[in-house]
């Protein structure tokens, strides 16, 4: 297990200290401590119900939208506490999220990508055009949609829709992109495209990805965290965790002895 770095170190993006989360009386996260580094892909793995998605959602306070959630502990984004010293709306513009089911709005491709900039007050068409093009290019989908920008986004295939959702978050120029099982609902080729995209994006963004697919975690992530029943069992570089895990439970999970 890595040590918790001092908050002043500049390569750390998130520092999580003693995080506990309760849904009513049920404890979903138990004393989580870890750090997420900049420009890396950190994967969160673990069996269903282990708390990895819940943990992901604490990073952009999406848990606030659910009733009866209590959080103790601290989460620092660049040394600022996200719960106590930051506005949730502002936080989510810096830490955006891509979901398991591709969920483009029932609007045109253009309007989907322009949504973020528009709610931030950008109105000029030339500016929006530029942002839309840049985001779609970054998401490696520009060539496929440039001739149908004003047609409904719902006409795209599942894999394309997911890349569109990624483009949508990129339009906000976030610092962190959270991905909650982004390829679970997609075919293998689309999955590969999105994995390639993530590996490319990490040069400019910090990425945290929840995945059920261990090969995916080992392929693209730099660090991996293994969650079990709300506890962080092991957190290490990916190659170490997958070739010589220190905890027996990690070994048993990743080799499929239980799941």
């Amino acid at each position: 297990m890595t040590d918790i770095h001092a908050k002043e170190q500049t390569n750390i993006k998130f520092t999580v200290e003693s995080l506990n989360l309760f849904y009513g009386d049920f404890q979903a996260l138990n004393d989580i401590n870890l750090t997420i580094e900049k420009n890396e892909i950190t994967a969160l793995i673990g069996p269903s119900g282990c708390g990895k998605s819940t943990f992901l959602k604490t990073l952009n306070r999406m848990n606030d939208l659910e009733p009866n959630v209590t959080i103790n502990g601290n989460i620092y984004l660049d040394s600022v506490d996200v719960n106590k010293d930051m506005d949730a709306i502002e936080l989510r513009k810096r830490v955006s999220m891509v979901f398991q089911q591709p969920n483009p709005f029932p609007k045109s491709v253009y309007d989907n990508v322009a949504y973020g900039p528009r709610i931030n007050g950008i109105r000029k068409k030339t500016q929006l055009d530029e942002i839309v093009e840049r985001s779609l290019k970054q998401a490696a989908i520009w060539d496929e949609v440039k001739d149908r920008l004003h047609k409904s986004a719902l006409g795209l295939s599942g894999g394309q829709q997911q890349r569109l959702c990624i483009a949508r978050t990129l339009a906000l120029e976030p610092e962190v992109i959270l991905m909650d099982e982004p390829t679970s609902a997609l075919d293998p080729i689309s999955t590969m495209k999105i994995e390639d995209l993530a590996s490319e994006l990490k040069k400019n963004y910090t990425i945290v990805i929840v995945t059920h697919n261990m090969q995916q975690a080992s392929r693209i992530s730099d660090k991996t965290a293994f969650f079990l029943l709300g506890n962080l069992v092991e957190f290490d570089t990916t190659i170490t965790l997958f070739s010589q895990p220190s905890d027996k439970r990690t070994e048993e999970y990743i080799t499929g002895r239980f799941g």
Binding site: Q215, S218, F242, S243, I254, T255
Partner: peptide, 9 residues
């Protein structure tokens, strides 16, 4: 079977 960890070693 795509073995990993001790199985792979």
């Amino acid at each position: 079977e795509a073995p990993i960890a001790s199985d792979w070693r």
